[in-house]
Nucleic acid binder design. Structure first.
Ligand SMILES: [Mn+2]
Ligand SMILES: [Mn+2]
Ligand SMILES: [Mn+2]
Ligand SMILES: [Mn+2]
Lengths: 218, 218
DNA sequence: TACATGATTTAGATGAGTCTAAAAATAAAT
DNA sequence: ATTTATTTTTAGACTCATCTAAATCATGTA
């Protein structure tokens, strides 16, 4: 009935990797993400499988069961709620919260989570713009899209990012694409999938590599 | 450089037991408190000793080193700060917070602790009246005494308890000795060390067994 | 002083989680 | 269809934290 921190971290990693690949998650992908060895992953997948948290058969990759999915989403809920708390109430910077939340997400108390959620006024997004699932595991309706998928002519604003490296965030700051910044998408170039924006009356050219990491409203 | 949750819990237990015994803490006392076996305690003491967190030689009991003391006090600081947070900001009842704090105390982030402390306005006591050490490990000056040591004639108020069982707390509630309750100590009976109080104009007889678990102002 | 009793430590085992090195299965290339 | 390369799994070993059972130490009492 109890999942270890390690098990919880694996489940979350499987969840995140499976969002971007169809079919099962590979042992190597998981090893890379968990910063461990493939052999350790294999061991863990057997353990998770015996606890009915994942569907796993050797050489075929792994997927979450309903039970495993529930656990993974609950960890994500806790992680993101704590990030909101740290930023909004303790004055943490956005880039300072992740490692702490990585620990807090494992505190086990349903009462705590629901009271924290209420205290925070049931936030729908974390400080990075990540959506926060509710107590039933449902994510907020996606009122957002990646910048590289926004239709031409649309007015929009920056809601979040999926890449948190210092260099990326510094770049966004430099060109003015801060969180909440409004803009209009005025053109799209198919040959390199780059886009042209208009923000504060100034034109801005954004590469696909950058655009695909930015969440915007739609 | 990293202490496991288990190690931290042992250090805290050694600290608490050593407050009430002169000399080292015994293996059995520790086993009882940690709800484990004496042999497991011996193993752990060897590990803590090799990490220079305790002074231990076989059959002689154990004491904390300066290094171990620092860790123990820091865990207590975190535990009590989180309890304040849970009660004052999340609306937990006093009796609901301990188990959650037992987990939260192990979240490792000096920045988090200092920001939490600031957010809570540097509280000096937790919801049970337990003193909260500051960032340097210093406890607040004791402006308190056990009820069984209060001088006759003194007006005082309830500040905390050292016994947290449901039955004890229910008893206090029943007789009106709630946290913050004002009273005057009107008599002391040497033969059984019981005391007579006057609270809200009504007399109340309190046994030594109860009185010795109640902190009051002096 | 010697025995009995209780406290403590050792010995040996287990499970979780990890590692390295080697074997096996799958996928890619010729 | 073979051979080669890559991915994945097994085998065996290690640490941490725990247990049970057996041995040892310390002490109080006869
Ligand atoms: Mn995060
Ligand atoms: Mn984590
Ligand atoms: Mn407590
Ligand atoms: Mn604890």
């Amino acid at each position: 009935m109890e999942n270890s921190f390690t098990e919880e971290n694996y489940l979350k990693a499987i969840y995140k990797l499976s969002r971007r690949t169809n079919g099962g998650v590979s042992t190597n992908a998981l090893a890379e993400r968990m910063d461990t060895k493939a052999s350790s992953v294999t061991d863990m997948l057997k353990r998770l499988s015996s606890k009915k948290l994942v569907d796993y058969q050797k050489y075929q990759g792994v997927t979450l069961t309903d039970k495993g999915l529930k656990v993974a989403v609950d960890i994500i809920r806790k992680h993101r709620l704590w990030e909101v708390f740290l930023v909004e109430h303790l004055g943490f910077g956005e880039h300072e919260v992740h490692d702490v939340a990585e620990q807090m997400e494992h505190v086990s108390s349903p009462l705590l989570v629901e009271r924290l959620d209420k205290f925070l006024n049931h936030p729908k997004y974390d400080p990075h713009g990540g959506p926060i699932p509710d107590a039933d595991g449902k994510f907020p309706a996606p009122t957002r899209v990646k910048l590289d998928e926004l239709p031409v002519g649309k007015q929009s604003k920056v809601l979040g990012v999926t890449e948190h490296s210092d260099s990326f965030l510094a770049y966004l700051k430099k060109v003015g694409l801060d969180l909440g910044q409004q803009f209009t998408l005025i053109d799209r170039h198919d040959f390199d999938r780059s886009v042209d924006l208009l923000l504060n009356g100034e034109p801005l050219h954004v590469s696909h590599e950058v655009a695909r990491h930015i969440f915007v409203s739609n």
